[in-house]
Computed example of a mutant assay.
Amino acid sequence: MTVRPTQPAPVAAPTPPDPAPPERADRPGPGAPRTRWRRRLTRLDEKGAPYAYVSPFFLLFGVVGLFPLLYTAWVSLHDWNLIGGQGDFTGLENYRDVLAQPYFWNALRNTVSIFLLSSVPQVVLALLIAAALDSKLRARTFWRMGVLVPYVLAPVAVALVFSDLFGDRFGLFNHVLGTLGVPEIRWHQDTLPSHLAIATMVNFRWTGYNALIFLAAMQAIPRDYYDAALVDGASRLRTLWSITIPQLRPTVIFVVVTSTIGGLQIFDEPRMFDQYGLGGPDKQWQTLTIYLYQLGWTQKNFGRAAAVAWMLFLIIVVFALVNFLLTQRISSKEGKR
């Protein structure tokens, strides 16, 4: 009988430890809250940083621009004077009283007349001066700085000097015109001559400033356009009309809009044109801002003065909308071409 050797009992392999149960989503680890807050702060920084960068402008505009505008509207709806302060609520009565005054319409006509006589020649002269400064002149830096000198001068000083130059009897302009056989012009008596004199002051002060704006825009025009035009035999006037002005369309629009706003708010030049500052003996050059000033500080009627200020604001908005519509129409025609 054969005895078989006994086999050793198989040893069971050690069972691996059970894997740790996965962490639940609602059971973050010890560092998860800090990571989550960092992500939230990062998203908040990405979304809020652009608004924080531009917020100083809007805060400043709200304090010095929007709040005075709204407060002026509130004053225009009340019987408000300098001594008694806020009175009874009058609604649109101040606006009706102002529109019924012939001085308001006279001031509006004078304002529009001076604005047209100053803004239109101003833009044309600024374009021509900028084109001349963009050419190959000697001492170009000197001439470019020189055109800005009138803008640096104080408006009161410019008005005082030009009021003497446009003197009725002993003014330089009448003396020069007299040598040419032109009869004496009453700059401080007649309506149109006074408007021309005041518009000359405005043009003297602002033409150089606008010329530098046009010059900066001209520097950005590629010179290849001019080289190709010169090869084709185009003259300087032709290149100005066919190349420069079309390329300056956005800049021209900007200058026209700013000139419109400034021209309708003109105050210093007509105020200092004579020693009384009332817009002439017969209100020949009284503008809306001078009329507003007289209502507020001479007649002590802040309610009507605020009404005039708001109507002037609406007039400026209307002119700006007209400029915008004309610009859109011109741009659409150019796009079709």
Results as ranks from 00 to 15, higher is better:
Thr2Leu: 04
Val3Trp: 08
Pro14Met: 01
Pro16Gln: 03
Pro17Gly: 00
Pro17Asp: 07
Asp18Ser: 14
Pro21Gly: 02
Pro22Asp: 09
Pro28Glu: 02
Gly29Asp: 10
Pro33Val: 03
Arg34Thr: 10
Thr35Ile: 12
Thr42Ala: 02
Asp45Lys: 12
Asp45Val: 14
Glu46Phe: 08
Glu46Ile: 11
Lys47Ile: 10
Pro50Thr: 07
Pro56Cys: 09
Gly62Lys: 05
Val64Ala: 09
Leu66Pro: 10
Leu69Ala: 14
Leu69Phe: 15
Tyr71Ala: 14
Val75Met: 06
Asn81Pro: 08
Gly85Ile: 07
Leu92Ile: 05
Asn94Ile: 10
Arg96Trp: 11
Arg96Val: 11
Tyr103Asn: 10
Trp105His: 06
Leu108Glu: 03
Val112Phe: 07
Ser113Ile: 07
Leu116Asp: 12
Ser118Val: 04
Val120Met: 15
Leu127Asp: 09
Leu137Ala: 14
Thr141Phe: 05
Phe142Gln: 15
Leu153Arg: 08
Leu153Ile: 13
Leu153Tyr: 05
Leu160Arg: 15
Val161Asn: 01
Val161Ser: 01
Ser163Met: 02
Phe166Ile: 03
Gly167Trp: 00
Asp168Lys: 00
Leu172Glu: 00
Val176Glu: 00
Glu184His: 00
Glu184Arg: 01
His188Ser: 01
Asp190Ile: 01
Thr191Lys: 02
Asn203Ile: 12
Phe204Tyr: 05
Tyr209Phe: 14
Ile213Cys: 08
Leu215Val: 02
Leu215Cys: 03
Asp224Ala: 03
Tyr225Pro: 13
Tyr226Gln: 07
Asp227Thr: 09
Asp227Met: 03
Val231Tyr: 01
Arg236Lys: 12
Trp241Tyr: 11
Ile245Pro: 07
Phe254Leu: 15
Thr258Asn: 04
Gln265Trp: 04
Ile266Leu: 13
Phe267Asp: 10
Met272Asp: 15
Asp274Cys: 07
Gly279Glu: 05
Gly280Leu: 09
Pro281Lys: 07
Gln284Ala: 09
Leu292Ile: 12
Tyr293Thr: 08
Gln294Arg: 12
Leu295Ser: 10
Leu295Phe: 14
Thr298Pro: 01
Thr298Asn: 13
Gly303Arg: 07
Trp310Arg: 06
Trp310Met: 14
Leu314Pro: 04
Ile315Leu: 08
Ile315Ser: 04
Val317Tyr: 07
Val318Thr: 13
Phe319Ile: 13
Phe319Tyr: 13
Phe319Ala: 04
Ala320Arg: 06
Phe324Ile: 05
Ser332Cys: 12
Lys333Glu: 10
Glu334Arg: 14
